[in-house]
Lab assay of single mutants.
Amino acid sequence: VPQRAWTVEQLRSEQLPKKDIIKFLQEHGSDSFLAEHKLLGNIKNVAKTANKDHLVTAYNHLFETKRFK
């Protein structure tokens, strides 16, 4: 089981690129989880459509539901 890579403050910070969060989610989330949160596909394309709040919610949801690969 992966550990949380970032704190809530870090997740919301401008310093953390959306692409980093997407990469983490794609590496650790199950396909059904990723599909549900519309996070499947090319990281660049996902970054265009997903806002930061959406990614933070998905990140927290992944750990709450433990839907890891």
Rank of each mutant, 00 (worst) to 15 (best):
D31H: 13
E27T: 09
I22H: 01
V8N: 15
K38W: 09
D53P: 06
I21S: 00
V1M: 11
E14I: 09
D53N: 09
W6Y: 06
Q15T: 12
R12V: 12
K23P: 01
L62F: 04
V8I: 11
G41I: 02
R12W: 15
L16D: 01
Q15D: 10
F24L: 02
A58M: 06
Q26S: 04
F63G: 01
H28R: 05
Q10L: 05
E36W: 11
L25V: 03
T57A: 11
L39G: 00
V46K: 05
F33Q: 00
F68L: 02
A47C: 13
E9C: 07
K69M: 05
Q3E: 14
N60L: 15
F33D: 00
F33H: 01
K19Y: 13
N42M: 12
L40C: 14
L62P: 00
V8M: 10
H61Q: 12
H28A: 11
S32C: 14
E14R: 14
A5Y: 14
D31C: 15
T49G: 09
L40R: 10
F24A: 04
F68Q: 02
P17Y: 08
Q3W: 05
K23F: 07
F33I: 02
V8Q: 13
H28K: 06
D31M: 13
E27Y: 05
R4T: 05
D20N: 09
P17C: 10
A5V: 14
E36V: 08
L11R: 01
K38L: 10
W6D: 06
V46E: 03
L39I: 07
H28N: 13
L62G: 00
W6P: 08
L34P: 00
E14H: 11
I21P: 00
P17W: 04
F63I: 03
Q15W: 10
L55E: 00
K44W: 14
I43E: 07
L40G: 08
A58Q: 03
N42R: 13
R67N: 10
V46R: 06
H54Q: 12
R67W: 06
G41M: 04
A50T: 13
R12C: 15
S30D: 11
L39H: 00
S30N: 10
I21A: 01
I21T: 01
E64M: 10
T65C: 15
K23Q: 11
S13I: 03
D53L: 06
P17L: 11
H37Q: 08
D20Q: 10
L34E: 00
E64G: 05
K48T: 12
P2C: 14
T49V: 11
N45R: 14
L16V: 15
L62Y: 02
T49P: 02
K48F: 12
N51W: 06
Q10M: 11
T65E: 11
F24C: 05
L55Y: 02
K48W: 08
N51R: 07
A50P: 04
L11A: 02
E27C: 09
V56C: 06
R67Q: 11
F24N: 01
Y59A: 02
T65L: 08
N60M: 14
R67F: 05
D31R: 15
R67D: 09
F68V: 02
I22Q: 01
L16N: 03
E14F: 08
Q15G: 11
L25W: 00
R4F: 09
F24H: 02
R4Y: 08
E14Q: 11
A47Y: 07
H37R: 10
L55S: 01
T7E: 10
S32W: 07
G41P: 04
K18C: 15
A58E: 01
L34K: 05
H37M: 13
H28P: 00
K18P: 13
H37V: 06
V1Y: 14
I22V: 11
F24D: 01
K38Y: 12
N42D: 14
K69D: 04
N51T: 12
L40P: 01
L25R: 00
I43H: 08
K48E: 15
D20H: 08
V46M: 07
G41L: 03
L55A: 03
L34V: 04
L11G: 01
E64V: 10
L40D: 11
V1Q: 12
T7I: 03
E64T: 09
T7G: 05
N60C: 13
H37I: 03
F33W: 10
V8G: 06
A35T: 08
L16M: 06
K23E: 13
I43N: 06
G29A: 12
V56F: 05
E36K: 07
P2A: 04
K19I: 14
L39Y: 01
N51H: 09
T65W: 11
A35S: 10
Q3C: 15
K52W: 10
V46S: 04
E36C: 11
V56R: 03
R12N: 11
K18Y: 04
L16S: 03
P2I: 07
K38D: 12
T49C: 14
T65G: 11
E9N: 04
L39A: 02
E9Y: 03
L40I: 12
F33E: 01
N60I: 15
Q26P: 00
K66E: 08
R4C: 14
A58Y: 04
S32G: 08
N60Q: 12
R12I: 10
H54E: 12
D20P: 05
H28S: 11
L39C: 02
Q15K: 14
N42S: 11
F68G: 02
H28Y: 13
K66M: 11
K23I: 08
Q15A: 13
P17G: 09
E27I: 07
F68A: 02
R4W: 10
H28G: 02
E27Q: 11
E9Q: 05
A50R: 07
L62H: 01
K52M: 06
R4P: 15
F68R: 02
S32T: 11
E9L: 04
Q10E: 12
F68W: 06
V1R: 06
L55W: 03
I21C: 01
H61G: 09
E64I: 08
G29P: 00
T65F: 14
A50H: 09
P17K: 12
T57C: 14
